[in-house]
Design a protein around this nucleic acid. Structure first.
Length: 299
DNA sequence: CGTGGCCCCTGTGGGC
DNA sequence: TGCCCACAGGGGCCAC
């Protein structure tokens, strides 16, 4: 579900709602959505404990109970809730993940598939509602991070954030790769935050064919592509992200950016620029929509 | 090593 | 109406 613009929208909403609150309790309904550094099998790359014949006992994860929330941060599609003690949880929403923040006494918008529920208290001691991680498909997850360094180490594995990525950075990470541009943009170690929607939208904006091999691009084309990525993502942030079907902000609102999509979800329709029919192909195992008239290849 | 293929999981919409 | 298949905003792991 969520790419950078949706996650940034979630971050801003949470920042306004939960920074300064303290965590008074947590309910974990599905332990396997959580990974801890001490998890002998999962480590930081979460495994599927359901597959184990007998679940191994792991240290109780530190889910911030008793701590005070200092900031909500984002890199690419990853979100971190950081407390004044330096303990943090990193949240990845995967395909269908959602964070809900119902106020005190407010009902949950959806009550099924709620895996982790925190209760919050404001600085004045009043109840501040809850924070709820919901994820029907469970491709998302939560990682507990005991120190600021642990968070930094995680985020060092990611490429530069899509809102600020430069052509030189893309060229340095992808310039010698034989993969398609589409596959390159989906690689979170090349640029963090671009997913299937915004990869197609950015490639259309830059008038580059998705099947182009990365290594065929010139420095000017990398600059143009980076500029398109920044523009497409920031515009989507300003519209609250794209709601195709599932995505909701923590207050339940939907994003309005889908109405601006030029190619994603529009296969068979005329290109908004040249009227040729947009075509759908599969690249990097993902549906890819593009305009054969506008988007050039470098054979 | 870089890369493509497969898998994880649930829900939904279209065709028959 | 109901069944079945294809597909969905992601990414980890494993052969080549």
């Amino acid at each position: 579900m969520p790419e950078l613009p949706e996650v940034e929208t979630v971050r801003r909403s949470l920042e306004a709602r939960i920074v300064g609150c303290s965590v008074t309790g947590v309910i974990v309904r599905r332990r396997e959505v959580i990974a801890t550094p001490s998890d002998p099998e999962g480590g930081f790359s979460r495994q599927r404990p359901a597959k184990r014949r007998r679940p191994k006992r792991v240290a109780k994860p530190d889910l911030l109970v008793g701590r005070s929330i200092e900031s909500v941060r984002r890199r690419g599609k990853q979100l971190a809730i950081v407390t004044d003690s330096g303990h943090a949880v990193l949240i990845h929403l995967g395909m269908t993940g959602e964070l809900m923040a119902p106020g005190p006494g407010e009902r949950l918008r959806a009550a099924d598939h709620c895996h982790v529920l925190w209760t919050l208290r404001a600085q004045d001691g009043q109840p501040a509602g809850r924070l709820v991680f919901r994820d029907p498909r469970r491709f998302g997850g939560i990682w507990t991070l005991p120190t600021p360094n642990a968070l930094a180490a995680r985020w060092d594995e990611l490429g530069p954030d899509g809102l600020t990525v430069t052509g030189a950075e893309l060229a340095a990470r992808l310039g010698r790769s034989a993969r398609s541009l589409k596959a390159g943009l989906l690689d979170q170690t090349a640029v963090a935050g671009v997913g299937n929607i915004y990869a197609d939208e950015s490639l259309f904006d830059a008038r580059l064919a998705p099947a182009n091999p990365c290594k065929r691009l010139s420095a000017q084309e990398w600059d143009s592509l980076a500029s398109s990525i920044r523009r497409i993502l920031s515009r989507a942030v300003s519209l609250g992200g794209s709601t195709i079907r599932d995505y909701r902000a923590p207050d339940g609102s939907t994003g309005k950016a889908a109405a601006r999509h030029q190619v994603y979800g529009r296969a068979g329709l005329p290109c908004p620029a040249c009227d040729q029919r947009l075509i759908s192909t599969t690249l990097a195992q993902r549906t890819t929509v593009w305009c054969p008239g506008c988007q050039t290849a470098n054979p």
